[in-house]
C-alpha cells in the first residue's frame, strides 16, 4: 500500500496528471495521479492516508521548491493539476464527512486591481495543503470581503495587490475589516508589498510567496 502513497506523491511532485499526459516526458505513457488514486481507493487504501500522506506532503515539497526558486510556475501549475485530478476521486469522502478540510481560506484581489496570477497561484497551493478555498475574484470591495467573513466565521482571509496604488485599497479594506472583526486573521501578498507594509496596515502576515502562506496557515490551526 505504501507504494501507492509514494507513487501518488511522486506524480504530484512531477506534475504527472494521467497516462495521456505527455508531461513529464520521462513518464510518458505511465499512469498519473489520477489513475493511481482511483486504483488505490479501489484496492482499499484509506482516503485520509492518500490525502495526508501523499497529496498534501507532495504539494508541500512543490511549494518549498518553488520558494527556493528550484521549481517555476509552469511546473507548479502542472503539480496543481495533478493534485486536482487526484482530489477529484476524494470528493465523495469529503461529501460524506469522512474527510475534512483544514479550514476555509477566503481570497481576493483588492478593489481597483484586476490582476489574478499571484492570487490564483496562492489559491492552488493552499488548496493543495488541505484547505478549502473561496475565491472572490478580482476588484473585490471591502464590503464583499466583510460579507464573506460574516458568512464564514473562523475562516482566514487572503488579499492580493499588484499595484502600488491598490495597496491603498488593501489598507482601507484591512482597517475596515479589523474594525468590525478584530480577531479576523488576514494574510496579504503581492509584488510591491513588504512585511513592513503588512505590519503598518494591520494585517497579520505578509506572504512573500505561496509556500509562506501555507506555512502560516499550518501554524494557526
Amino acid at each position: 500500500m505504501d507504494s501507492y502513497i509514494d507513487k501518488i506523491s511522486f506524480c504530484i511532485q512531477k506534475g504527472k496528471i494521467d497516462s495521456k499526459s505527455p508531461y513529464p516526458p520521462e513518464m510518458k505513457g505511465e499512469p498519473g495521479a489520477d489513475e493511481l488514486t482511483m486504483e488505490a481507493l479501489r484496492d482499499g487504501l484509506n482516503a485520509n492516508d492518500i490525502l495526508t500522506k501523499a497529496m498534501i506532503p507532495a504539494m508541500g515539497v512543490v511549494g518549498e521548491l518553488f520558494k527556493e526558486k528550484k521549481l517555476f510556475v509552469p511546473q507548479v501549475l502542472m503539480s496543481a493539476k495533478a493534485m486536482s485530478s487526484a482530489m477529484h476521486h476524494l470528493k465523495p469522502y469529503f461529501a460524506s464527512g469522512e474527510l475534512k478540510q483544514k479550514g476555509l481560506f477566503i481570497v481576493g484581489t483588492v478593489a481597483g486591481d484586476l490582476h489574478d496570477i499571484g492570487k490564483n497561484l496562492v489559491s492552488m497551493m493552499i488548496e493543495g495543503s488541505g484547505w478549502s478555498v473561496m475565491d472572490l475574484g478580482v476588484d473585490v470591495k471591502s464590503e464583499q470581503f466583510i460579507e464573506a467573513i460574516r458568512d464564514n466565521p473562523g475562516s482566514v482571509l487572503g488579499m492580493s495587490a499588484l499595484l502600488t496604488t491598490t495597496m491603498e485599497s488593501m489598507e482601507r479594506s484591512v482597517r475596515e475589516i479589523k474594525s468590525i472583526y478584530p480577531q479576523q486573521k488576514i494574510i496579504v501578498g503581492g509584488a510591491p508589498l513588504s512585511s513592513d507594509f503588512a505590519k503598518r496596515i494591520g494585517a497579520d502576515f505578509y506572504a512573500q510567496n505561496p509556500q509562506t502562506a501555507v506555512e502560516y496557515l499550518g501554524n494557526i490551526k
Binding site: Y23, L77, M78
Partner: peptide, 9 residues
C-alpha cells in the same frame, strides 16, 4: 496560466 503550462505541454 495556459500559456505557461503550454511551454511544457
Amino acid at each position: 496560466e495556459q500559456g505557461l503550462i503550454s511551454l511544457i505541454m
